[in-house]
């Protein structure tokens, strides 16, 4: 049905996974702006083997924005940084059983938040 959320989206919206912050995060991604109605902040913790051991988020946005944030944190945990870079917005949307067309930009935002967090991690690593 057009414009309706899947069961999976509603489930993640009701019980979002990994809400919060990581105080000693390895990388933080910030994307979106309030005028557009979505802001995502994604925290990742990376160990010495380049494996993402933890991910958390804070999101201002609609049901789809919260669900995609939740899903992307679930998808990256346990993956290496290189593997995480291959996670596309489509993969996030598919893992949620699809998104209404008008909400696909939320999955794009989730992908961008992840890339931004990884970029931040890489930049920090270079400096160190």
């Amino acid at each position: 049905m057009e414009g309706q959320y899947s069961e999976k989206v509603m489930e993640h919206f009701r019980n979002p996974r990994n809400v919060g912050e990581i105080p000693d995060a390895s990388g933080i991604g910030n994307v979106g702006n309030p005028v557009c109605g979505d802001i995502m902040r994604l925290y990742i913790k990376v160990d010495q083997n380049e494996v993402i051991t933890d991910a958390k988020f804070k999101t201002f946005g609609c049901g789809a924005a919260i669900a995609t944030s939740s899903m992307v944190t679930e998808l990256v945990k346990g993956k290496t940084v290189q593997e995480a870079l291959t996670i596309s917005n489509r993969a996030v949307a598919e893992a949620l059983g699809g998104l209404p067309k008008i909400k696909m930009h939320c999955s794009v935002l989730a992908e961008e938040a992840l890339r931004s967090a990884i970029d931040d991690y890489m930049a920090k690593k270079k400096k160190a």
Partner: peptide, 14 residues
């Protein structure tokens, strides 16, 4: 303030 409307509507709907 600090919130987006749809997420409030969906929560109230529940």
């Amino acid at each position: 303030k600090y919130l987006e409307g749809e997420s409030i509507i969906l929560n109230l709907d529940m």
